[in-house]
């Protein structure tokens, strides 16, 4: 296909991106070099590096940064681990039943962060469903504190973003040729062996695609950490919100976000290259 045609196909999306995404983003870059005037949104347009130097003057920002990545990594790994058994189960069903189950398992996404968070709130509260249940069965003596802890946030994130992983994973599991399993079994491989040497390598592209989606969703999540973290778990999204909406320090929140995006860009680019490598292996034609 000629390059000219490719450009024509990309053009509408690119135009939309430039107009709606790039220009506001450029505005943010401009803002990030302006001076904050406390209490107002009218920032002083004289040029300053202060917003950026502030980022490096205090270890607190790195703490948030580190915590954000840690929570995202743990959540993504947990999603990965939880999604395999379910995806294998789903891919072993006949098409009709699977359809229904796939539909059910996407509900956490369709329902949206608001509804999920409300539900978790009710369950994870000090006297919520889970604690009442465990107390009633005399498994625990004192209620477990879920809300306001990283554990609570991770539980919420994992549940919300599981479907993002299950969908690509099931599609790549289904693409695996059944005969490979049969021959592996014929050769006497036990299920765990088959799982590690056949299932995982062959489903890696799907898992990778899902993992990138989940990872990025976790990094930029806001509703879940702010409600389940109860202001105690500051991550990137909650801190940006605090600076931008509550303190209304637009110049600083702009520089904070730009710094975050630049450093994240490196991580994601690496993940993308990795995913591309995996895809190449899977479909040699690319």
């Amino acid at each position: 296909m000629k390059t000219k045609h490719v450009w024509a196909l990309v053009m509408p999306a690119l135009l939309l991106f430039v107009l709606i995404f790039l220009v506001p983003f450029l505005l943010l870059i401009v803002k990030s070099f302006q001076t904050y005037v406390p209490g107002t949104l009218i920032s002083d347009s004289s040029f300053t590096w202060e917003n950026y130097t502030q980022l490096f003057s205090d270890g607190y920002y790195f703490k948030i940064y580190y915590r954000t990545i840690r929570i995202a990594v743990i959540s993504t790994l947990a999603v990965l681990v939880l999604s395999y058994p379910l995806s294998i189960f789903l891919s072993s069903m006949n098409a009709k039943v699977r359809g229904v189950f796939m539909t059910i398992s996407i509900l956490p996404m369709i329902g949206g962060a608001m509804i999920q968070t409300m539900g978790w709130f009710a369950m994870l509260m000090r006297y919520g469903t889970i604690n009442s249940f465990l107390l009633g069965l005399h498994i625990i003596k004192d209620p477990i504190q879920f809300l306001g802890t990283e554990l609570g946030v991770i539980i919420g994130l994992v549940q919300s973003f599981l479907p993002m992983m299950i969908y690509p994973l099931v599609s790549s599991l289904l693409a695996i040729d059944r005969e490979i399993y049969d021959s592996a079994r014929t050769l006497g491989a036990r299920p765990p062996k088959i799982f590690f040497s056949v299932t995982i390598p062959l489903s890696a592209p799907g898992a990778m695609a899902g993992a990138i989606l989940v990872f990025m969703a976790c990094l930029t999540s806001f509703v879940t950490p702010s409600s389940l973290g109860q202001g105690k778990i500051q991550v990137f999204g909650t801190y940006a919100y605090q600076q931008a909406i509550q303190v209304m320090n637009w110049p600083f929140s702009s520089s904070y976000a730009i710094f975050f995006i630049l450093s994240m860009g490196i991580v994601v680019l690496a993940l993308n290259l990795l995913a591309r490598g995996l895809r190449r292996k899977r479909c040699g034609s690319m």
Binding site: F25, L28, T220, S254, V268
Partner: peptide, 19 residues
């Protein structure tokens, strides 16, 4: 180009919304 199209996943909606 792919990085460009995927960038909204990285940029927190809040900050973009301010712009």
């Amino acid at each position: 180009l792919q990085a460009v199209f995927l960038s909204p996943l990285m940029l927190p909606g809040i900050v973009w919304a301010i712009g």
